[in-house]
Design a protein around this nucleic acid. Structure first.
Lengths: 120, 120
DNA sequence: GACGAACGGTATGGATTTGATACCGGTATC
DNA sequence: GATACCGGTATCAAATCCATACCGTTCGTC
């Protein structure tokens, strides 16, 4: 059971999978669901700066790929909750690491950018 | 030394860092440099489907952020090599995990998409 | 029962990114 | 001199993203 898929190949299905993961807001949404299910408005408030349109689109995509589930409670008023599926939770592991890396290496990157400015 | 940065905050510098990492081709390029330095044309051939324009742009961005280094050898004919910096190599760890996740979970995601088609 | 607010989104239209394709100057090689 | 390779640019079309406004339903308040 070797490497059946290779993201570097243009026609490999893993390529589309990786491009989906790499979509602008996927990392944010998956991380935002780390603590449990959230409602649409909660997500919008938590992930500052995301527009409702993009949030809807990204959620639909992630749902189509089986990474999150959308549960519409038949209450009054109706309530919609988004949660990670087991598959989504498995993706959370590497994506959480990416988020942590970003949060931890801000000074390094800002230093690199500053260095660049000096040369220019 | 708690969490000084939070990617969910719109104005947090880590936000721009994460968006840079999440750019369409960053994961591919960083992973492509896993085995050592590569030349421009090698990268273009290895990462199938990337256009030279986008490759140039992404390389410049990654260089500005201190993730890769560009070394121009003063030979004849001149040769240009791109390599991961120590910082870039530290990013490679989570990004390699993301790539592997994508390659390993293709069947799961294709199954989810197929299920979606049945319902539609 | 009119008024306003919250929820879960859509609609529209413009700005930004991405992509496809062609091209270019310099250096070998034939 | 003709051709090909390297490391890119230039140009323009297409896809994506973002800002802003709006909508129908439900609820609480008066």
């Amino acid at each position: 059971m070797g490497k059946a898929y290779n993201v570097m190949a243009a026609t490999c299905p893993s390529r589309t999978v990786l491009h989906r993961i790499g979509a602008r807001w996927t990392v944010f949404i998956v991380n935002a669901l780390d603590d449990g299910p959230r409602r649409f408005t909660e997500l919008k408030a938590h992930i500052q700066g995301i527009t409702p349109k993009v949030l809807t689109e990204t959620l639909r995509s992630l749902e189509a790929d089986g990474l999150i589930s959308r549960h519409e409670y038949d209450e009054s008023p109706p309530r919609v909750e988004y949660a990670l599926t087991p598959l989504g939770r498995s993706l959370l592991v590497p994506l959480r690491a990416v988020r942590l890396w970003a949060e931890q290496h801000v000074p390094d990157i800002e230093a690199a950018r500053a260095r660049r400015h000096d040369h220019a």
